[in-house]
Structure formats: structure tokens, C-alpha cells
Nucleic acid binder design. Structure first.
Lengths: 110, 110
DNA sequence: TCTTATATATAAGAATCCTATATGTAAGGG
DNA sequence: CCCTTACATATAGGATTCTTATATATAAGA
């Protein structure tokens, strides 16, 4: 898995991105992120939950308590209009970082 | 310029990369990083100097006091064998992050 | 009944960035 | 001669975002 120092800042982008495909609760987000990156990007739930609270305070996502098919309560988050709007410049910024590191550090896109 | 949250962890890669082309002192490194990324990646010297001390402790770089053409003393850093060896897996790790974020978050390479 | 999977929550600590501040020399303009 | 800008290193204090460890609780399956 990719080291902690390198992946800093990716959680925010990852959460917004997986929520783009529909509402999800925290536990499931962690699984999706891991699966969709083939295990390259993985967050502990202790990192994810505080991140979700911060993003909710910034009004990028909105959470609501729901009862899953198994009867357990869980907090379901969905993207707000503000969150959707944030996603595009965030992607742009990451693309610029990639571009910069390719030039400066010869990081190739595998 | 790329925001602080996103570029976390890039300083180490940036320093090792610019030192690959020959020895440099801190002040000049900051300029090279900024120039070679067209201003996209920029570090304050207050971020760079402590980073150089840490990397020297890990034996990835080695510093020596020299006198520049203008007569001012400056600390010149060069890549060690260990530093050179570190660079390749570090690039690999960054490439994997790029790949993961392209899949997960649809970050395109501009 | 014991373990595993599901689900959320918080505390304590590490790492890496920021702004602000401090020190000092050299060069150039007014 | 003084003032500003460029050069050059250094440290303090604070913010953010990860980590591991711990806590709680229910459901399913062996």
C-alpha cells in the first residue's frame, strides 16, 4: 500500500469521488476506496470518520441516520451541491500536481 | 499554486530529484523547484531547511559548508548512495498514487 | 458461546506543512 | 552614505491530517 506521508490529502478527494456515484456510509466508503484502487489506497476508519465530520461542517456532504438491511443504524452521507462544485477544481489541482511532479521528478504514469 | 494540503509529502521527492542533477544549497533548491514546475510547486525556506536536516539524519543527503562565488557561506547538499537508492521506489510509489487517483477519482493527466 | 463482520467514535501521537520572526552579508540606486 | 532588494540560514508556534490503540455494540455463523 502507498505510504502515509505520500497519500496525505487524498482522503478528501477520495470521499467526494466515491459519493459522486451515490450516497454511502463511512464503513462502506472505506471498502470502496480500497477496492477501486486495488488496495493501493486504504484508509483506517479512525481517519475517515473525523474527515467526514469536517466535510459535513464545511457543507460539502450531508449525513443522515438510517437503518441498513441488517437492522444496524448507520450514518449515510450524500454529496451536497457545494460538494459537487468543489470536486472539479480539486481534480484540477491534483492534475496540476501530477504534471508538476512528472516534469520535476520524472514520475511516470504507469 | 497547489495548496498545502495536497502537496504534502512532495518536498522529499522534490529535494531528492533536484539533487540528482548535482549538488545544491537550500536557497537554490527552492528556486529550482519553483522554476521547473512553472510555479506550481513552491516551498518556503522554513519548510525546506528542517526537511534537509531530517534527510541528512537519514543519510539520504550529505551537507558541507562552502563559500559561494559571492563570498557568502552556504550549506551545499549532495545525494548519497542511499539517497540515490531511495529515489526509485519513491517514484514508483508516487506513480501508484497517480494511477489509483485516476481510477478512483477520475483525475486526468493534463 | 466464541469469533468474525458490521458500524461508529475518540484519544494520543507523529509528520509535514504554514506564517512569523531573527540574523547577517552583498550589491545597487538615490 | 543610507535604503532596499537579493542572498542565505535558522527557529518558534500553530494547523492539518494521518497513524495506532481503544471503546462500544449488534448480527451472523461455526
Amino acid at each position: 500500500m502507498i505510504g502515509a506521508g505520500i497519500k496525505r490529502g487524498t482522503a478528501e478527494l477520495a470521499v467526494l469521488s466515491v459519493l459522486e456515484n451515490g450516497p454511502l456510509h463511512g464503513y462502506e466508503m472505506a471498502r470502496r476506496i480500497e477496492q477501486q484502487t486495488k488496495g493501493a489506497l486504504r484508509f483506517t476508519l479512525a481517519a475517515l470518520y473525523p474527515m467526514l465530520y469536517r466535510m459535513e461542517q464545511r457543507r460539502w456532504i450531508r449525513g443522515s441516520w438510517e437503518i441498513g438491511h441488517n437492522g444496524r443504524r448507520r450514518r449515510c452521507y450524500r454529496l451536497t451541491a457545494a460538494g459537487k462544485k468543489k470536486l472539479s477544481p480539486l481534480r484540477q489541482e491534483w492534475a496540476e500536481l501530477f504534471s508538476a511532479l512528472r516534469r520535476l521528478a520524472k514520475v511516470t504514469h504507469a
